[in-house]
Computed example of a mutant assay.
Amino acid sequence: MSKHVLVTGAASGIGAAVAARFANDGWAVTGVDLREPELRATLSALTTDTDAHVADLADLADPTAPTRVVIKAWERRGPLDAVVNAAGIYPARGFLDLDAAVWDRVQAVNVRAPMLTTRAFAELAVATGRTGSVVNISSGAALRARPGAAHYSTSKAALEMLTRAAAVELGAAGIRVNAVSPGFVTVDSPANPVTEEYAAAVSVNPLGRRGRPDDIAAAVAWLVSPAAEWITGTVLRVDGGASAGTTTLPPHWPGLSEVQAPDPHPTQGATL
């Protein structure tokens, strides 16, 4: 039997790319999302074998949904080998306009749901003597706040700590828990739209291009693979170097662009 992965947020963007990567690697995929037409279209495009991949509709803000989708996937398609928590929401809202309802929904989808899917997966794995891997999709916003994203940045910072905490407690059971933190990735998402002006401002990085969903999917697949079997509790930043530093600041001393390595053998006392 092929390996089995559950991917939340699988209808589009990074989640869809992750689902496609695992399908291409021969895995069975259970995709979870709230948007039925998009989810079914994404999964139907993965393979001609209509029995290989399964769609499950769920609003992960519902506190019962994350556990339910894991149990349902396990029972319907067979034991899970991995869970990828790619679902996330980012309803831009200025700090003075934040209210409890908006705040709570972001935390519910972005933090509570990954905690519940991870717990449900680990419980089933332990009960059946299996091991497995969880990968959470974080964001550079976990490290750097920005206007309109207090709720989102907080949720991603919490998700990274959740990743470490779960890794510490589940490691003895053979459950590895890691995260991938993307830089700006170009996605066509009606759920989380951004303006081109915003995209241009946040997508500057040392490697000089915007990220693609496939960049993130490749990192996720590697973390789940045997090549990463001694890695847990890690946040892998896949951002073109954006978290290392910025290339947008002007030189802060004269002649910066002309600086050269010093001559290791300077001429002493030269005369004309």
Rank of each mutant, 00 (worst) to 15 (best):
T118Q: 05
A120R: 09
A120W: 03
E123W: 00
L124A: 13
L124P: 03
A127G: 10
G129L: 06
R130H: 02
G132P: 00
S133I: 02
V134D: 08
V135M: 02
S139F: 03
G140V: 01
A141Q: 12
A142R: 03
R144T: 15
R144L: 11
R146D: 13
P147L: 11
A149E: 12
A150K: 01
H151D: 14
H151K: 01
H151V: 04
S153M: 02
S153R: 00
T154R: 03
S155P: 03
L159P: 00
L159V: 06
E160A: 03
E160N: 10
M161D: 10
L162V: 02
T163N: 04
T163Y: 04
T163C: 08
T163G: 06
R164P: 05
A165D: 15
A165P: 01
V168A: 14
V168L: 15
V168N: 10
V168D: 14
G171V: 15
A173W: 09
A173R: 14
G174D: 11
R176G: 11
V177T: 08
V177I: 08
A179C: 09
A179F: 11
V180D: 13
V180H: 09
P182Q: 09
G183C: 07
F184R: 07
F184I: 09
F184C: 08
V185L: 08
V185H: 09
V185A: 09
T186Y: 08
T186Q: 14
V187K: 02
D188R: 14
P190D: 13
A191S: 12
N192T: 11
P193W: 00
E196G: 00
E196N: 05
E196P: 02
E197M: 06
A199E: 01
A199F: 00
A200C: 00
V202M: 05
S203M: 02
S203C: 03
S203Q: 05
V204I: 11
N205Q: 08
N205P: 00
P206A: 06
L207S: 02
G208P: 02
G208M: 05
G208Q: 03
R209T: 06
R210C: 04
R212F: 07
P213T: 11
D214K: 07
D215H: 09
D215E: 12
I216W: 04
I216N: 07
I216V: 15
A218C: 11
A218K: 13
A219K: 10
A219V: 10
A221F: 09
V224L: 09
V224S: 06
S225G: 14
S225V: 11
P226F: 12
A227S: 15
